[in-house]
Design a protein around this nucleic acid. Structure first.
Length: 474
RNA sequence: GCGGCUAUAGUUCAAUGGUAGAACACUGGUUUGUGGUACCAGUCACCUGGGUUCAAUUCCCAGUAGCCGCCCCA
């Protein structure tokens, strides 16, 4: 849709421009460069999207909350390049994962294969290693808010350029750090009024997982004739994915399947239990999901995903059924990247996806979105007032007042309509007469009562009125 | 990457084998310097290419894009 709309806009613009070109070029007799034939218009590329000013409040709500949480929980902001060596992800995410095999934007470069980063954890770990952060006080806690790229087939909430906010704790092997990350991500949504649920599981260490995988495959092999086609493929290729199957015929088999928790060592198991204990104490609602096995190779122990907590009715909302975020522990990744064993855990949240749900939600619910509201509106009439208005607007800005205005409308009616839309309690009106007299009108938007005051006193008076207004509202 | 559905104004939707209409939004007016309601007017659209046809926005095919399911994931 966006593509077409953008195209149409361009065409509309072209129409307006066309007559001018004709006039200009008619005398020379040369054919117009723009001509009558449609000129190629540009559209946003597939799977990409513009973030328009209208959506900004949702992005800002999320960003502000992320930054506030990061500050409170003491995560330092890190920003890594969009471009990385392709090998970084091949080694960290693992060959055979869809992200690496099918979805990376890879380019040949004189220095070898480079790519647009498909995720945030590997670059952060790379930066950790490069900067020798072992020498920092441990653990090192970092957060990021960055665009990511994956060449996947687009869908609602699934873009080729998307944004993630992520939190990583490197250098701590402590169930409390797992719980802290879950708490931060949970609050990220909860604070702005979006209800979410946490699904959690533990996938232990690689050798435990391998043993389980064998066991799971053995179990499924005995039921092979009852499986759906897709599951038969999974059985050969990636047995863990059998747990993702949504086919009805496979459900009973899935329900009876061995669960990974039972194949974990005592140490792994008690680590997981401890994480759950912390979550209980924090009051973070979670559900154990034995079928949750995340796709990236680097995960160990705790894995979790965050889903919007939707009612049956809301599940039909566009793109609302997928995970908003996910993460887990990756104790072996730093060693894989550097040879130095360092435990770590992290979480990544899909911002575009969250914004989509937030938008759908905002229509029904009262969300804690930042107020872009103005304190007052400044209406002006006539050329002389316009010049004075700019000056006064600047003075009011310096005094900390948020002022709505439109210098390019001359009708007072229109300007007061705008003031009304902004729901400001007071409007200032500056016309020719007021400019001459050095005064300005303060209009009470509710009662319509107006008073004429000296321009020099307007700032103090309006502040006094606003204070009084706020008290009355409370 | 696979399967399906869809494509008309800024948005949400209509109608139509003879080039299109509403609501909301936007601009202006009724009110030559006064909003919240009302009324009036105006601007803006048939995704692209090919085929069938006297004639295609409409039917057919392809492309493209979006959405849904799968895959995967944020």
């Amino acid at each position: 849709m966006l593509k077409n709309k953008t195209k149409q806009k361009f065409q509309a613009v072209k129409k307006n421009v066309a007559p001018k070109n004709k006039k200009k070029e008619a005398p020379s007799g040369k054919p117009s460069a723009t001509g009558d034939k449609a000129k190629k218009s540009f559209s946003v590329m597939r799977g990409m999207h513009d973030i328009l000013p209208r959506e900004e409040k949702y992005w800002r709500a999320l960003y502000n909350n992320s930054a506030a949480l990061a500050e409170h929980f003491q995560f330092g902001r890190i920003s890594t390049p969009v471009l990385e060596e392709a090998g970084l992800f091949v080694r960290s995410l693992g060959k055979g994962t869809d992200v690496v095999d099918k979805e990376m934007y890879v380019f040949d470069h004189a220095d070898g294969k480079v790519c647009l980063r498909p995720e945030g954890t590997a670059p952060v770990v790379r930066a950790f290693v490069n900067a020798g952060m072992w020498n920092y006080p441990q653990p090192v806690k970092m957060w990021y808010w960055e665009p990511m790229f994956r060449h996947d087939r687009p869908q609602a909430g699934r873009y080729r350029e998307f944004h993630q906010v992520g939190f990583e704790t490197i250098g701590a092997l402590d169930p409390a750090s797992d719980a802290e990350l879950i708490l931060v991500s949970y609050n990220l949504f909860k604070d702005i009024g979006l209800p979410v649920e946490v699904r959690i599981n533990s996938i232990g260490l690689p050798d435990e997982r391998e043993r389980y995988k064998t066991e799971l495959a053995n179990y499924y092999r005995t039921k092979k004739s009852y499986l759906c086609e897709e599951c038969r493929k999974r059985l050969l290729k990636n047995p863990l994915r059998l747990l993702d199957c949504k086919e009805d015929q496979c459900q009973p088999i899935k329900d009876e399947a061995p669960q990974i928790v039972d194949w974990l060592s005592e140490t792994s198991k008690s680590y997981f239990m401890k994480v759950l204990e912390y979550l209980d104490e924090l009051g973070v609602p979670y559900s154990l999901d034995p079928t949750l096995v995340r796709g990236l190779d680097y995960y160990t122990h705790t894995v979790f995903e965050i889903y919007p907590a939707l009612t049956e009715e809301e599940k039909n909302l566009e793109g609302a059924q997928s995970a908003l975020g996910g993460g887990g522990r990756y104790d072996l990744l730093v060693e894989e990247m550097s040879g130095r064993s360092t435990p770590a855990a992290g979480v990544a949240i899909g911002i575009d996806r969250t914004v989509a749900v937030l938008k759908a939600y905002a229509e029904k619910q009262n969300l804690n979105l930042p107020k872009t509201q103005c304190d007052i509106y400044f209406a002006q009439l006539g050329d002389r007032a316009k010049g004075r208005t700019l000056k006064m607007l600047d003075d009011l800005r310096k005094s900390g007042l948020k002022v709505g205005f439109n210098l390019y409308k001359s009708s007072l009616k229109t300007q007061l309509e705008a003031a009304n839309d902004l729901k400001v309690p007071y409007a200032l009106i500056l016309g020719q007469k007021e400019v001459q007299e050095g005064t300005i009108i303060i209009r009470d938007m509710e009662s319509g009562i107006q008073e004429i005051v000296d321009q020099k006193k307007v700032e103090i008076m309006i502040k006094r009125k606003l204070k009084k207004f706020d008290e009355e509202v409370k």
